[in-house]
Amino acid sequence: MVNEPALQTPKAEAKNLNFFYSAVHALKNIDLPIMRRKVTALIGPSGCGKTTFLRCFNRMHDLYPGNRYAGEILLYPEGRNIVSPEADPIEIRMSISMVFQKPNPFPKSIYENVAYGLRIRGISKKAVLDEKVEKSLRGAALWEEAKDRLQKSAFDLSGGQQQRLCIARALATDPRILLFDEPTSALDPTATTKIEELIIELKKEVTILIVTHNMQQAARVSDSTAFMYLGEIVEYDKTDKIFTAPSQRLTEEYITGRFG
């Protein structure tokens, strides 16, 4: 393919990243590229630091006292370090958005949930909002189900629909990177399939980093996979490689279900 090399450039890259919850050293010397318009999956046993790592990317840790970053996450093409104290977390969250483990729609209408990110950026023209809301809901494969009830409460949607609504909310502001933290762990198989198809569709436009407990899911949706253990990256490679011929024994033991 002609643009293959261009697609293989990293959108972001963790370099010697360390993270501390006060005294707890949760991430240790992490080096990991996040490829542009690809899906990178993070797998590993419970408590190994997947969520912690993910939340570094949009500086969610800054919301709580005592948390500290060391090292870098470089955002390309500018190459600036988004975890440095000089980088403004609010500005970073404007371009790196997040979808949480449990759907967390706001107790507002479907429309207002999606429009929220635009409203806080000062956009209030109805025509602009209407267009963006439709585009985002389409992008999140929710438009057909939601178009006739845009003014209804988001709480009336099913769990899977709520999660897609949260994806639409994250998409509305045209993020450069989308973070997913086990986005289907609270959903049934049908809703899970929908979200997985959606993720594969979304990577045409955005760079995706996804945490998952489900190995099949990682295999289905991701291009490359990183295996984490005790706060470190044990192995990072193309997803097929990781699942067929991992180079580390620990990785192999984990994906064959011998621990974790």
């Binding site: 969610m60 609010i90 969250r93 404007m94 958005s97 949480f100 967390n104 706001f106 929220y116 509305a172």
Partner: peptide, 22 residues
């Protein structure tokens, strides 16, 4: 719930916007 606050911050809201809208 904390999840609501985080949902607001995650799309780039400031503290005051979170207070005002949520």
């Amino acid at each position: 719930p904390t999840a609501i606050r985080e949902g607001s911050y995650a799309v780039g809201a400031t503290k005051w916007q979170t207070v005002q809208y949520h």
